[in-house]
Structure formats: structure tokens, C-alpha cells
Computed example of a mutant assay.
Amino acid sequence: MGMRIGYGFDSHAFKPGVPLVIGGMKIEHSEGLAGHSDGDLLLHAITDALLGAVSAGDIGTFFPPSDMRWKNADSTIFLQTALEEIATAGYRIVNMDCVLILMRPKIVPIAGEMRARVAELLDISERDVSIKAKTPEGLNQDGTAVAHVTVLLESLNVPGEPKKMIATMEEPDEVDEMVRTLIDGEEPYSTARLGRKPAFDTDDLT
């Protein structure tokens, strides 16, 4: 079975007057993280790891900071796009290991909740997500938060076996609909059954 590894990195400086968002969670703290979007460095690093694993570029390729549509954007949007890319490439997540490096706030007390939130966003089991926290001792990074992420993907196609539709069809009409949409070049019958999120339309943003 084909396997691919992706690595993601991100860092943001702390900034007063903005909410702190890490791993899709709002965290009570005196400062948030500066950034063009919501500053969620963990979701940014996960997004880059997923995109890198399938050689699809990086987060800036899809969401350049020069584009004002992404000003203060929810980083789950970026993550959904990365999930679309790996599903389109024919892969799924096996497991993910994340390291957060920051002096404060303390992540250990909320690591379980953060792990559950990330697993929910990725639509995988909590046991396939690891989140660890370290302090930047000796690195002179007290005012900065850093995230490192490694992800392992596996191919949805098993070598030696004929390719087949992954969606399970229960009625003949469903098979006809799948074939029609594939021939017509329309949206596949059900991307959700491939573990994909619905395609995100950037034109919907104001």
C-alpha cells in the first residue's frame, strides 16, 4: 500500500488584544497570536503537512496573505481545503504527530480536549492524533509560539487489485447517478463517502 509523509511548520508572535486560537479551540489567555487569519499556528502546520504530503504546494499557495479575503479567516477553512487535496490525490490520514513549543499558556491541561478537536476536524480517531507541548528553554522564544507536525498518509488503492468505486451503492438508481455524474464531468456522487469535505467556494466570502 502506498504511503506518503508530510511535514508542516508554523510560528506566530504573541500579540495583545486578539483571541488565542490553537487547534481550532479558543483558549483563555492574556494574548493571542498575530497573523493575517486567526493565527491558529497548529491548524496552519497541519494544513502544510497535508498539502506537502501530496506535493500540492503550501498554505500560501491557496491562501496568500496578500488576499484580504483571508483577513481574520477561520483556519478550519484552510484545513478543509487540504483534506480535499489529499482525498483528490487518493490518500487518507493514517496518523499525525504534533509538537507545540511555547512558554505559556500551558497546553498539557487542555491537550486532551485539543486532540479531540483536531481529530474531529480531520474526521479521524483521537488515537491517531498526538499533541505534545514543550517549552522553548534556551531558545529565547518566550514571545513566540511554534508548531511542528508530521503526518502519515496511505493510498486508498491497494496495489494488485482492480480500482473500484469506494462509495457503497445500495440501489441501482444510485449506480446510474454515479456513472452519469462521472461521464458528465460534474461533482462526484458523494465526496463525503471518500472522507472528503464539500469543496469550499472562495467566491462565497465577502
Rank of each mutant, 00 (worst) to 15 (best):
S11T: 07
T191F: 05
S30Y: 12
T47W: 06
G57R: 09
E174Y: 00
D48F: 03
T168D: 06
Y189G: 03
M3C: 02
V99S: 08
I77N: 06
L153W: 09
A111E: 10
N72S: 15
G57L: 11
E170N: 13
W70D: 02
T206Y: 09
V179F: 06
K197I: 13
Y189K: 04
V21E: 00
H44P: 00
D97N: 15
S130K: 15
G52H: 06
M178V: 13
N157V: 14
A116F: 03
A192T: 13
D128A: 12
I77D: 02
S11W: 02
A49F: 02
A145R: 02
M3L: 13
G8Q: 01
E84C: 04
A45D: 03
I86P: 02
A87M: 06
T181F: 02
I59S: 12
E170S: 12
K197A: 10
I59F: 03
R117H: 07
H36T: 15
V129H: 05
A133H: 15
A167H: 08
H36V: 15
E113T: 15
I131Y: 04
I86A: 07
G8F: 02
S30W: 07
G23H: 03
K134Y: 11
H44L: 04
G35V: 05
V175H: 00
A89L: 07
G6L: 06
L153Y: 11
F14E: 02
E31L: 09
R196H: 03
E31C: 11
Q80V: 01
Y7D: 01
R4H: 09
T61A: 10
D142V: 10
A147T: 10
L102P: 00
P162Y: 06
T81I: 14
G90W: 11
A147D: 01
P105V: 12
F200D: 01
F62A: 04
K164S: 14
T144I: 14
L43S: 03
I101Q: 06
E161C: 06
A116C: 05
D74S: 04
H12N: 15
D173Y: 01
M169V: 05
E187P: 00
D184Y: 03
E120Q: 14
N95R: 14
L102Y: 01
G195D: 12
E84P: 00
I166A: 11
I107Q: 08
D97E: 13
K71F: 15
S66P: 00
S75I: 01
I93M: 04
D48G: 08
G52M: 05
V129T: 08
E171L: 09
P198E: 07
A89R: 13
A133G: 13
